[in-house]
Computed example of a mutant assay.
Amino acid sequence: MKGLGVTRFLPVDQAGCFVEHVLGAEPPKGRDLQVHIKAVSVNPIDCKMRASVAGELSVPKILGWDASGVVTAVGPDVTLFRPGDEVYYAGSISRPGCNSEYHLVDERIVGRKPGGLSHGEAAALPLTTITAWESLFERLLIPLDPQHNAGTSILIIGAAGGVGSMAIQLAKYAGLTVVATASRDVSKRWCLQLGADFCLDHQRHLVAELDRVDLAGVNYILCLNDVNYYWQAMADIIQPQGRICAVVSAKEPLDLTVLKNKSVGFAWEFMFTKAMYETDDMVSQHELLNRVADLVERGIIKTTMTEQGGPLTAANLARAHQRVESGQMVGKYVLSGFGA
């Protein structure tokens, strides 16, 4: 089988940024599924992992952590799936990625593909769905109860990207007042289309922007952008005993004492944690992906695929990375099918 990988870090406009590589046909073991990849989506983590390659590798590193496909074989300990099942998942950063014809993945982090979606539409969802779900309901500890959340608000900073697009929808499902931030008109329209109640300009002072929509503060904040840049503004905006979650690594140490007087909680979210450490609750990602598949089928959640770049080839994958690196993406970029 074939895969697309990197042997050294190259800018996306240089030939050889991605190379085709013949992979060994390793059978699934334990709780692994072998999945025939039908579509993949590109995320910022793909670009970061490509940039992290130092020197020249003798064996290409396969990237890609968003996939939809069909199970073709299962390991001896698998209980959740069988060959022929359509699935979607993000995978594990500790293992080779999904930019290949076939891929091995632990069943505990795989969900059934939502009915009614193409493989491309489904591939846009897993990584951002898991990140948004865990951020809202596991890190921020928001109850999944619309009645309980009546009158409760969340600020989502950088809401037009993949994670923000899912967080808006899930937060509305949970009954929160959703305040999104974006800077471009197209991004603001996208956030409002997904259900945000307000959309602020994060290039302006957020306290003043909240005043503009008659909000004195918010109960929760999900920061999907530069946490250092927004740190003091978040400390000013958050209500007493509120909670803040961030997904982007800090460039400098954070001063947690600015949250002390308000007794504010702070948490990080990294969706690969459970798979990396094989935590006892690892199967929760399987469960939440299935739950979101149900919400998609009920019309409550919609795919965030906004751009399709053709089949998965070296040239198309480089263009996808270039698009994601531009910082201008709204929603998700998808490639469907291998080669051609």
Rank of each mutant, 00 (worst) to 15 (best):
L144C: 07
P11K: 05
V227H: 02
L104N: 00
E107R: 07
L200N: 11
A208G: 15
P83S: 03
P76S: 09
S100V: 01
R189Q: 13
S68H: 08
Q322S: 15
V78T: 05
F198V: 08
E297H: 08
V296F: 10
G115K: 13
T303I: 05
G339H: 08
G91E: 06
G217Y: 05
A15P: 12
S336M: 02
L144K: 15
E269S: 03
Q14A: 03
T129W: 13
V110T: 10
R204Y: 10
H202K: 11
Y277E: 12
R112M: 04
S249W: 13
Q169H: 08
S153L: 13
G217L: 05
A182E: 03
L176P: 03
T306D: 00
S94A: 15
C17F: 02
V283R: 15
L10R: 10
G16C: 04
T303Y: 01
F266P: 05
N99T: 07
G111H: 06
Q147R: 14
A51H: 11
L155R: 01
D211C: 12
Q232Y: 05
P253S: 06
L117C: 09
D32F: 01
A39I: 07
I238T: 10
G55A: 02
G120P: 04
L295I: 07
V247W: 13
V19E: 04
V292N: 04
N290K: 00
A122E: 00
V12D: 15
S41F: 02
A124N: 07
N290F: 06
I238N: 08
L33V: 01
L4S: 00
L141D: 15
Y229H: 15
L194Y: 00
V59A: 06
A216T: 14
E121Q: 15
S100H: 03
G158T: 06
G164D: 07
E107D: 06
S52W: 05
S326L: 02
Y88G: 03
G195Q: 05
H21C: 00
G310H: 04
G158R: 12
G242Y: 09
R319N: 15
V6Y: 03
M305K: 14
K172N: 09
G161Q: 06
T273S: 11
L80Y: 13
E269M: 08
I237Q: 02
V330G: 06
M329A: 15
V207W: 00
L312T: 07
A122Q: 01
H119G: 07
Q34W: 03
A180H: 06
G161N: 08
A340P: 08
D66L: 03
G175E: 02
G175S: 04
G331C: 07
L215E: 13
F338N: 02
T181C: 13
T306M: 02
V78F: 05
N219V: 08
